[in-house]
Design a protein around this nucleic acid. Structure first.
Length: 499
DNA sequence: CTGCCTCATA
């Protein structure tokens, strides 16, 4: 936000209009420079200073950074603007389109061949490559950055390691990391969290044990890595060691990393333990994300009562849309359709605008609770009232809802109406389950054909279809399908239980 | 200037 007290630009809009007018020039950059009077020059410097401080206070303001970008290009006075340039680069690097950072770099280079970029510039440019996960582009900037003499610059090399590990260049990231003359905790953490995210949790653990001083980011990253790799006991063990042995205080991020491990194990007692610990240490009162994750964890541990109680404890002005969505999805997975619908309505009354995730949850609740009419109503509401384009998960709920209540023809009709760009085998698999339940052989065969067009490696489909055939007395066909499954080497997933 | 980040069909 602009501070309007001593600013000549009272509002954002006015500021934008003013800047647009004053920066638009029909002259070439060189001519523009030559025609500037002294007062104009003075004004320009003031403008530059103002933009710089504004952008530093609002590092993610896209509109302003676009304007500064055009300022840099049209005035061609780059040599004094490295810091301004860096501010724009930082903005682009963390934006939706990190490619803009690269474009700006190329533009500056084409205007001013010997522009002196500093360590900040390269740090942000490489960060943009990391966001893009563009390994080839990152390698190019690696080369340029070495040529410009930042080979042993701590910050530049740290983002470089981050870029390599984020975009899958595991060999390169290890090489850069090993050759760094000095590393700090952040460097180690970039390596550990990056490796954990890429699935190499073993090597991440090796570095974790080896690193000189671990902080909370190291612990959280490591715990998160184990959770991602479905090694939930290991994650919990590490959390325990962190709190009990090393006496490190967890952060809100640590809770966000450990709670999925808790609900994957599915023990409510652990959930209560973590909850109690967090409450005692005052970590839960500050961050709504942790509270939402806790609602979700209680629900997924099968304790909807605790989830609801905790939800009600959160004050109205702290709650957000995700809190409501977590509650609704909790009701959905417990087949409590009525409660989910009521929560949805209460949420709307409190002025929240549901998003696509909220609708997946409430549609899922309707299908699990066999509330077909309500579900169809919600689907229409989503499309017409909230203008949300349904995605494959919404269709999946709809097909499931119609299929499980025996309205197979309608379900098939919906499945066929799904645009082919977003359609997948999951929605047909749902329908196949319904066909199996109601013993509809003809539709089952049609549906299986559809699935085989998309995915033929999932053994469950063959088993389900052959069961339908057996139910209809077509034993020979069933056996043929089983043989086909073996020939295609389809994966047979064994039934698993949480206990 | 660099690191961990809540909810979603089977």
């Amino acid at each position: 936000m602009l501070k309007s007290t001593n600013s000549p630009f009272p509002s954002k809009t006015k500021f934008s209009v003013w800047f647009f007018r004053s920066s638009t020039s029909f002259l070439s950059p060189k001519q523009n420079e030559a025609h500037l009077s002294l007062s104009h020059q003075h004004k320009k410097n003031y403008k530059k200073y103002f933009l710089f401080s504004f952008l530093n206070e609002n590092p993610t303001n896209q509109r302003v950074s676009k304007q500064v970008h055009s300022h840099l290009i049209t005035t061609a006075s780059f040599s004094h603007s490295v810091r301004l340039f860096n501010a724009v680069l930082r903005c682009y690097a963390v934006s939706e389109n990190p490619k803009d950072a690269i474009f700006l770099y190329q533009q500056i280079q084409s205007f001013y061949l010997y522009f002196k970029f500093d360590s900040f510039s390269y740090a942000f440019l490489i960060k943009a490559c990391a966001s893009l996960k563009d390994l080839a582009l990152g390698k190019q900037f690696h080369g340029v950055e070495i040529k410009m003499g930042f080979e042993s610059h701590l910050y530049v090399q740290t983002v470089l390691v981050n870029m390599y590990v984020e975009s899958g260049g595991l060999v390169e990231c290890k090489k850069v990391f090993d050759e760094m003359p000095d590393k700090n905790t952040v460097t180690w953490n970039v390596m550990i969290t990056g490796l954990a995210k890429q699935g190499d949790v073993e090597f991440a653990r090796f570095l974790f044990e080896k690193m000189p001083d671990r902080n909370i980011v190291s612990w959280s990253g490591m715990i998160d890595g184990y959770t991602r790799m479905n090694q939930h006991r290991e994650a919990l063990g590490l959390f325990r060691r962190m709190v009990a042995d090393d006496g490190v205080d967890p952060s809100e991020i640590t809770f966000l990393a450990i709670l999925p491990a808790v609900w994957n194990i599915g023990d409510v007692k652990i959930c209560r333990l973590i909850h109690g610990y967090g409450e005692k240490r005052g970590f839960l009162v500050s961050d709504i994300r942790v509270m939402n994750s806790l609602i979700d964890t209680y629900a997924k541990c099968g304790c909807m009562g605790s989830a609801l109680r905790f939800f009600d404890e959160i004050s109205t002005d702290t709650k957000n849309l995700v809190s409501w969505t977590s509650l609704i999805s909790g009701f959905a997975m417990h087949g409590m359709g009525k409660e989910a619908v009521e929560s949805f309505e209460r949420m709307e009354q409190e002025g929240w605008k549901p998003n696509r995730v909220t609708f997946v949850s409430v549609l899922n609740a309707c299908s699990h609770g066999c509330l077909v009419e309500e579900g169809l109503k919600f689907f229409k509401k989503m499309v017409n009232e909230y203008q949300i384009l349904p995605d494959i998960k919404h269709y999946g709920c709809l097909v499931d809802m119609l299929g499980r209540t025996g309205r197979l023809e309608e379900a098939e009709k919906i499945a066929l109406e799904i645009p082919s760009e977003i359609s997948n085998e999951v929605v047909w698999r749902i329908l196949l389950g319904a066909c199996s339940f109601y013993g509809d052989v003809e539709m089952g065969e049609r549906v299986t054909e559809k699935i085989m067009e998309m995915e033929r490696g999932y053994g469950g489909d063959y088993v389900l279809m052959s069961n339908i055939l057996v139910g209809a007395g077509r034993f020979a066909d069933a056996q043929r399908l089983r043989r086909l499954m073996d020939e295609r080497n389809a994966i047979k997933v064994a039934g698993s239980s949480l206990t």
